[in-house]
Design a protein around this nucleic acid. Structure first.
Length: 479
RNA sequence: UCCUCUUUAGCUCAGCUGGUUAGAGCACCUGACUGUUAAUCAGGGUGUCCUAGGUUCAAGUCCUAGAAGAGGAGCCA
């Protein structure tokens, strides 16, 4: 007999047929004559209820059917006599596939702390919360590819191992095959990378942008969606050492086009979650409300599904860095010196308390900030005509902070080279990048979207380590 | 990396100004129950009180150092 996936079963309207399901026991209850087993196979948040009537099957079939055990169940699919579910399977044959010793199995049918579940990341897929997150994560990956594919973008696999040391996006993980105890040294006594695997010093990528630019300046519209590595000693709820980043890069796009693309894309993928993950979103929404019960009303977050709708239905606020500074300078917390970093004037880098004020207090919706001072942004961003700001673009989301960082790129060779010289970026290592500005250079733009930060927003989770199956962070690489 | 907090049963947590035998709920085991919904009811305690020092007649409780975890900051996506 062919196995039926539980999600398909739960959408059926025909009863009385014999079915076969397989899955893991989430819970069991019993009384003298009958026992109930909640079975889940990962296909959806809901369980199928298995009814074990001791008149049909001996009481001993329940032996070993504990939380966590895996079962194969044959029986009749019937409308449920109980109130909690539409249907159930009256078991005719139950096979215990793999027992789970209840004295050792760490999961119980009750709420566990997310910290505890992080310590058992190999088993946390078996919880409702991580099941929901895992299904939503898949849907979001799919939505991203769908979005770009439908709009004629090409997916580019940019290298994971890179030799360019000039990206300036953060500390890097070195890649080497050398013996760390006994590295090969050159005449000066330094490590001789000419003898290393690639013949030069290499690292894990911190961004696929530079390579994506090369592709965009021939293919038109491209995007990358790959793993990205930052060796920063960051211990926050929104940083990972290994994360997935989406980086579209589009030839002939100027900054406004870039903003339009990012906003449209974020709305599309959010709508995709609403259209395809409603059961899981509803579960996460309830979970979040439950968790925030103890908080004061004004500290609670907006209901998850309403929050997602508000993103889709409202335009993002667009304003320049200069306008933002004016708002902040005249804001109550600034005047009353409540900010840890009081805004004195133009040129200061915005701290997360300022970003949060703009997004969560002042505008109460996503904000796209553009035209930052050149000094606080990367070398490749296009200089504005004022000579002091660049066409940078950060998108700030409520509760998350910076979810997108992007810019129109500097396409003018002379301006770019001047900038690189000023920022001490070695020209000879970047010859291939500069070639694109030497031959058929055009205006172009792109951005980086942190996939896990998007996941934080869509799932309403509070810690980035809970929206990726196996988080990599300082002192965390167990699984 | 910096600041703050936390670490007690398998899990979630209580344990007062230091006081002798360390507690609760859930899980688990046994039994009861006519179909349960995190079932319910009765009984059963399963412990390196994070680690190493120290103060004290006496330390889960106080002090010092360390480890791990969390929250915030910085860095950023």
């Amino acid at each position: 007999m062919k196995r039926t996936i539980i999600n398909e079963l739960l959408h059926q309207n025909e009863f009385g047929n014999k079915v076969l399901v397989k899955g893991w026991v989430r819970n069991r209850r019993g009384s003298k004559n009958v026992a109930f087993v909640a079975l889940n196979d990962g296909s959806c948040i809901n369980n199928i209820q298995i009814v074990v009537d001791f008149a049909n099957l001996g009481e001993e079939v329940m032996e070993g059917i504990n939380v966590g055990a895996s079962l194969s169940v044959e029986g009749l699919l019937m409308e449920s006599k109980g109130g909690g579910q539409r249907m159930e399977i009256i078991a005719e044959k139950i096979t215990l596939l793999g027992p789970a010793d209840p004295n050792k199995y760490p999961l119980q049918p009750k709420r566990h702390s997310l910290e505890f579940l992080r310590e058992i990341a190999h088993l946390r897929f078996r919880t409702n919360t991580f099941g929901a997150i895992t299904r939503i994560r898949h849907a979001m990956i799919f939505a991203v590819h769908n979005y770009f594919n439908d709009r004629g973008f090409y997916n580019i696999h940019t290298p994971i191992i890179t030799a360019s040391d000039a990206e300036g996006a953060g500390e890097m993980f070195q890649v080497t095959t050398m013996d760390l105890k006994n590295p090969i040294l050159n005449e000066e006594g330094n490590v001789d990378y000419k003898q290393d695997f690639f013949g030069k010093k290499t690292n894990l990528t911190v961004s696929g942008q530079l390579e994506a630019e090369l592709a965009a300046l021939a293919m038109g519209r491209v995007y990358t969606f790959g793993p990205t590595f930052r060796a920063e000693n960051s211990n926050t709820t929104r940083h990972l050492a290994e994360f997935w980043m989406i980086e579209p890069e589009v030839a002939f796009n100027e900054l406004t086009d870039n903003m339009d693309l990012a906003e449209d894309m974020l709305k599309y993928v959010t709508q995709y979650a609403l259209d395809n993950c409603m059961d899981d979103l509803q579960f996460l929404s309830k979970r979040l409300q439950e968790e925030e019960k103890g908080k004061k009303a004004e500290e609670r977050s907006m209901e998850l599904i309403a929050k997602l709708h508000s993103i889709v239905d409202n335009d993002f606020v667009r304003l320049t860095y200069t306008e933002a500074i004016d708002i902040l300078r005249n804001s109550k917390p600034n005047k009353k010196k409540r900010f840890n970093y009081v805004i004195e004037g133009w040129g200061a880098d915005l701290q997360s308390e300022h970003e949060r004020y703009l997004v969560e207090k002042h505008f109460k919706k996503p904000v796209i900030l553009i035209d930052y001072p050149a000094e606080i942004k990367a070398f490749y961003m296009r200089m504005n005509d004022d000579g002091k700001t660049v066409r940078a673009m950060d998108i700030l989301f409520p509760g998350i902070g910076e979810i997108v960082g992007g810019s129109q790129r500097e396409e003018r060779l002379d301006v770019l080279m001047e900038k690189m010289a000023a920022m001490n970026i070695p020209e000879e290592e970047m010859w291939w990048f500069l070639d694109t500005r030497r031959f058929g250079s055009v205006p172009h733009s792109g951005f980086g979207l942190g996939f896990e930060r998007l996941m934080l927003f869509v799932t309403g989770m509070g810690n980035i380590r809970d929206v990726i199956p196996f988080p990599r962070a300082p002192k965390q690489a167990e699984f």
